[in-house]
């Protein structure tokens, strides 16, 4: 396996997938972030998106500032603990200096004083990590999406979902309520404890190698869903996996979700025969309503044909490499 393949968080442990389970597992090691070789590229892309369409990528409600500082504290400590050569943090009481060796930046600010930062705290710290950062607040035994920096959405709108409860956010997922998953997962989140982080995966398919699949630009990237053929499926279709890490913030009772999105073109996936088998099983058993929801329906036929060909042992990779 090459490096990109070996670090890809392939989500299927077997050939079936339970769409309504709480598939969370304890997070080990307990770090909210991961730096991959794509760091420079993704940080650059993130900042470009933030500069170009800020309100699409960043939203917050006014009373989240304290929780945002907790996120800054958590993420910067995790960066320096997990990658001590790349990231440094000096603290002189509330005067913090953060050094990012990968971007060559040095940030000085007064912890707790938003005016000492060029952006809001969450917007600031998110610019140094590949992950999207979503902050839910727990108020009166309910969870609300109250702030987020989202540059790589899987076709969902931060602007529209801001302020929603957990159940309201997930209203569009077919079967999510009827199958009891909504209540089960909400209860799990409400009882999450500080000091015990969790992780879960979420997967989808994307036609085209786009991390930034915003619903605002759906007319631009969505058309590729209709351009898939059996010949281009291997390079056009990507398995998109979001590694979500969940942390309870001890001071404000907020919950931080960090979302690291990984993409793998099918032509690389199929080289792992075991992955190809499991993936093919999962995709061919995909219920229609989930396929619709994940936007797969328009290219289901060419996708199946492509996988069938691969399963038959066609050596298509070689042709694609030549193209």
């Amino acid at each position: 396996m090459n490096d990109a393949l070996s670090r890809f968080p392939f989500p299927f442990k077997k050939g079936t997938y339970d769409y309504y389970a709480n598939n969370s597992i304890p997070l080990q090691p307990p770090y909210s972030i991961e730096v991959t070789p794509a760091y420079q590229h993704e940080i650059h892309l993130k900042r470009r998106l933030l500069n170009k369409a800020h309100s699409r990528c960043y939203q917050s409600l006014s009373h989240t500032e304290e929780a945002q500082w907790e996120v800054v504290e958590l993420v910067l400590h995790h960066l320096t603990a997990a990658y001590p050569k790349e990231f440094l943090l000096h603290k002189e009481k509330d005067n913090w200096t953060f050094i990012n060796q990968l971007t060559g930046e040095e940030e000085r600010f007064v912890f707790g004083d938003a005016a000492s930062l060029p952006f809001e705290p969450l917007d600031f710290v998110g610019r140094h990590v590949q992950e999207d950062l979503i902050l839910m607040m727990q108020r009166d035994a309910e969870l609300f999406l109250e702030a987020g920096q989202l540059c790589f959405p899987g076709n969902w709108s931060l602007v529209f979902k801001l302020g929603m409860t957990f159940h309201e956010i997930h209203e569009p997922i077919p079967g999510f309520f009827e199958r009891g998953a909504a209540d089960k997962i909400r209860t799990f989140l409400l009882h999450m404890e500080a000091g015990r982080p969790w992780m879960r995966n979420n997967w989808s398919l994307t036609a085209g190698n786009f991390l930034d699949t915003f619903p605002e630009t759906y007319h631009e990237w969505g058309i590729h869903r209709h351009r898939v053929t059996v010949d281009n499926a291997g390079s056009l279709i990507h398995l998109r996996v979001e590694v979500q890490k969940l942390f309870r913030l001890p001071g404000t009772q907020g919950i931080l979700f960090t979302i690291h999105t990984h993409m793998l073109p099918l032509k690389q996936l199929v080289r792992q025969r075991e992955w190809l088998h499991r993936f093919t099983q999962v995709v061919t058993q995909l219920p229609d309503e989930i396929a619709d929801y994940k936007g797969i329906t328009p290219y289901k036929q060419p996708l199946f044909a492509y996988l069938h060909k691969q399963m038959e042992g066609e050596k298509e990779e070689k042709n694609e490499i030549r193209q």
Binding site: G154, N155, W156, S157, F160, K161, L162, G163, M164, E168, H170, E171, P172, I173, N202, S204, T206, T213, P215, Y218, H219, G222, I223, R225, H226, R240, D292, Y293, K294, G295, T297, P298
Partner: peptide
Amino acid sequence: VSSHYSRLHDAYYGYIQLPCSDGGESR
């Protein structure tokens, strides 16, 4: 027009419709 409603905006969500209609939100 969808049934996805926001109290903050007091509005329903309108998905972009492509000429070759599909839609969907992948979460």
